[in-house]
Write a protein that binds this DNA or RNA. Sequence first.
DNA 1: GCCAACGTTGGC
DNA 2: GCCAACGTTGGC
Length: 158
Amino acid sequence: MNHWLLKSEPSVFSFSDLQRAPESTTSWEGVRNYAARNFLRAMKRGDLAFFYHSNAEPNAIVGIAEIVREAYPDATQFQKRSEYYDARSKREEPLWSTVDVRAREPFARPVTLAELRVTAGLEKMELLRKGSRLSVTPVTADEWKIVCTLGGVSASAD
DNA sequence: GCCAACGTTGGC
DNA sequence: GCCAACGTTGGC
């Protein structure tokens, strides 16, 4: 199983929003960066992802979500009225993908960006790289365990 | 509000 | 193919 991290601005869509969604599930639409898209396409059903609040107070990992549907075409790329519309995208060959994610478990305690930065073993975490802006990033098994411990949840999110 | 880092666009 | 200009992200 692979692990990931998904960024979202809570003022736009928070972990609570995900928990409250029908079946606690949403389509992770709107990714318009090729590197992030490629990570979406690499996700497998059952993979787990940290849910990170960016542009937040505080910035923090706040919970765990599960990939419940693997990559499929992001419908918003074809919707002219959507902010995510992309005229270059063809039905036969969609540029952009989305996955479905379901809220698994909130952290007992949010783990802030400041805390992540000073935690041994997380030095190479993509989220912490200077200037990192990717909204979808992989997380190693070791990083996963460390952050789960800080968050007060079991690493398997059972 | 500022600004560094980054990805994308477009002129050449 | 290069690279300057631009728009966006996101921490501070």
